[in-house]
Design a protein around this nucleic acid. Structure first.
Lengths: 316, 316
DNA sequence: CAGGCGCCTAACCGATTGGTTATCGCGACG
DNA sequence: CGTCGCGATAACCAATCGGTTAGGCGCCTG
C-alpha cells in the first residue's frame, strides 16, 4: 500500500473513471489501472467495480476513500511543513479552465508573486469536471473557473460573453441572429468548449450545437484568429476581443441575450483546510491590483499550450 | 516518501534512538538508518540530529512528527476498515511486559477470544519504555503492564510482590532481610528486570542492585527455577510462586515492606482513537471471567520465549 | 587512551513499484 | 452486428525500496 496507489484509487473513486484519473495524474491509463490492481490485491477487495456509467465503490472502497484521501492530503501537508520550516518559498499551485489560464491567470499570478514576496507559483489547465478532485486531493491549491459546489467559491471577475465571427461572415449582416442559425455554424473554441461544465461548453450545450460542428483549438487566441479568417463563429470575451473588433478583424454578432454577464470564480477548500497561500491569493483578489492585472489582459498574451498535468513553473 | 520511511522516522523521534526504533520494528538498525536517510534526502531536512543523550528533532522534524504519525495511523485504519467491511475476523494486537505476557496475557486472551466470537489476537513482548510508542503508532491496540502516562491506563490486576530464594539460601534463615544484604545478592529476573520502567526493574532500581548482580533469564519461570536451585534471589509474584513455596522449592524472604501490593494496568489510546476491539477487551476485563482467567494462571504455563518484534499469533 | 556504544555509510541483493506499449475483453450503441 | 470506448492484462524495463552484513567514525566513559 503506497501513497501513489492510494492517490490513484481516490482519483478513480472521485472522478468515476480510470481514464480521467490517469489524465489528472499525467500518466498512462494502465499505470492507474495497475496501481489499482496492486491495491486491490493488497487489501483483498475490488474497491471499485465497473458499471455502466462509471466505476462504483464496493462497501470497502467507500470506507477507504475518506481515509486514503486524508493520507494523500497529509502527504502534501508534510512536504509543505518542511518547506515552510526551512524558509523556502511557498508553493501556490493554481489550476484553471483553459480560457482563464490563457488570459487571466497568468497576469494575475504575475501580479501576485511580484507584490507578495517569495512564492513559487505554478499554473495548470484542467477541466471544470476535474477541478474539484484536484482541489480536494490537494493536487492544487486554487481552482479558477466556474463556481464549484462543495468548495468555497467566490466570484473573481465578471466578463461579458458575446459571439463573434470574421467581418466577412454572412451572419454579420443579419439584424438578429437566431438560435437555429447559430447551431448550424462551425464553432471555434478552445478546450473549455469541449468541457460541458466550463464557460463555453455550457453555452454550446444551451445552443444545442452538435459535436460535429465544434472545432477545438489549442487556445482561444487561435480560435479567434481562425474566426477572423472566416472559418466560423466563436464565443468571445468582450474585453479580450475588443481590440480585434476595433481593428475590424472580428465582428460581434447580434445574438439575442448577449452580451451575457458571466462570472469567473475562485475555488478553494474551506478556510480550515486550504493552504495559507491560497488564503493570501483570495485576499489579493479583493485588491485593485488584482482587478487591474486581470483586466489588463488583452489578446497580446502569447498563446502557450498547456496540457492538464503539466504544471508550468512561472517563477522559481 | 513512503509509509515505511515515515514510520521509521516517527519511531526514532518518539523513542529518541535509531536502535530502539529498529528493535520495535523488528529490523536491523541500518534498515531504519537507511529509511531515515532516504526521507532526509527527499525532504531536504535532517529531521533528527544526533546529540549527547538522544536524537533531537529539527524544526522541520518537529512539524513532521504529528503529520507522519497521523499518516501511519490512517494506514492501519485503512486496512482495518477493509477488513471489517469484508466481515473478516478483527485484529487485536496486544503487547505486554515480559512477566505479564508470560503468565497473565495468554490466559486472558484465551478467555477473551473464546467468549467473544471471531477475533484474531496476537501477543508480543516489549519494554515499558517502548509501549507508548507502540500504542500511539498503532503498532498495537492494547498494552499490558505498568501504568503509562499520556494514555488511558486502568488498573487491571493487583498482585503481591515478594522476594523469594531457594530453600537452602542463607537469607531464608534470617529474621529480617535488610536492604544492604539484598543489594549484594545475585538477582534472577526476566527481561522486565532489565527494564527500569517495568515492575521488577523499578524494584531493583529502588534496592540499588548493581547491574553486575542482575542475571536476566528468558522468562520468570526460568528465573524461579534457578532461584530454587540456589543460584540467587528473585522477585516473586505471590500467587504465581505459591505452589513452589508450598512444595518447599522456594521460600519467601522476610523483607521489610513485602508483600508489596502492585498493580498491572491496561493501557490504550483514548476512547475516540482506540480500536473497537481494544474497547471490548477493556470491558471484558471487568467481568468475572477475566479475573478468573488471570488468576488461574500458575507456574504451569509453558515457558515460551518472545522477542519484542515477533508477534505470535494465538488464534487464526 | 582504549573500549564500547550508537549512528551512519558502503556494498550488495531480491522484490516491488511505477511506468511504458501493445493487446484483449466486454458492454453500449449506432 | 461491427465498432468504439474503456478497463484490465501482458510483457517488459528502469528505478526504488527495504532489507542484509561489514565496517567506519564520533563521542562518552572507565
Amino acid at each position: 500500500m503506497t501513497l501513489t496507489q492510494l492517490e490513484a484509487f481516490v482519483l478513480v473513486a472521485r472522478l468515476g473513471s480510470v481514464k480521467a484519473a490517469a489524465r489528472v495524474l499525467g500518466v498512462s491509463e494502465p499505470a492507474v489501472s495497475g496501481a489499482l490492481a496492486a491495491l486491490r490485491q493488497h487489501l483483498g477487495d475490488p474497491l471499485v467495480e465497473r458499471t455502466p456509467g462509471g466505476m462504483d465503490l464496493t462497501p470497502g472502497g467507500q470506507r477507504l476513500v475518506p481515509i486514503a484521501s486524508q493520507m494523500v492530503n497529509l502527504a502534501v501537508e508534510a512536504e509543505d511543513a518542511i518547506r515552510r520550516a526551512q524558509g523556502a518559498p511557498e508553493l501556490l499551485r493554481v489550476v484553471a479552465t483553459s480560457t482563464v489560464a490563457e488570459y487571466v491567470a497568468r497576469p494575475l499570478l504575475n501580479a501576485f508573486t511580484s507584490r507578495h514576496g517569495p512564492v513559487e507559483a505554478t499554473l495548470g489547465v484542467t477541466t471544470a469536471a476535474e477541478m474539484p478532485a484536484l482541489l480536494t486531493e490537494r493536487l492544487a491549491d486554487v481552482g479558477l473557473g466556474p463556481s464549484l459546489t462543495d468548495l468555497e467559491a467566490t466570484p473573481m471577475m465578471r466578463y461579458r460573453l458575446v459571439v463573434v465571427a470574421g467581418r466577412r461572415h454572412p451572419l454579420t449582416r443579419a439584424a438578429h441572429v437566431g438560435l437555429a442559425s447559430l447551431a448550424g455554424q462551425d464553432w471555434l473554441v478552445d478546450a473549455s468548449g469541449a468541457d460541458p461544465a466550463a464557460e463555453f461548453g455550457m453555452l454550446l450545450t444551451r445552443l444545442r450545437v452538435p459535436d460535429g460542428r465544434i472545432r477545438v483549438f489549442p487556445s482561444m487566441g487561435a480560435a479567434w484568429a481562425a474566426a477572423a479568417d472566416g472559418e466560423g463563429v466563436a464565443p468571445g470575451v468582450a474585453h479580450l476581443v475588443a481590440s480585434d473588433v476595433e481593428r475590424g478583424r472580428l465582428a460581434v454578432l447580434p445574438v439575442a441575450g448577449t452580451p451575457l454577464d458571466v462570472l469567473w470564480h475562485v475555488n478553494t477548500l474551506g478556510a480550515d483546510r486550504r493552504s495559507p497561500m491560497a488564503t493570501r491569493l483570495r485576499r489579493f483578489l479583493d485588491t485593485p491590483h488584482a482587478m487591474q492585472a486581470m483586466h489588463r489582459a488583452d489578446g497580446s498574451v502569447p498563446v502557450s499550450r498547456f496540457r492538464p498535468p503539466v504544471y508550468v513553473t512561472l517563477w522559481s
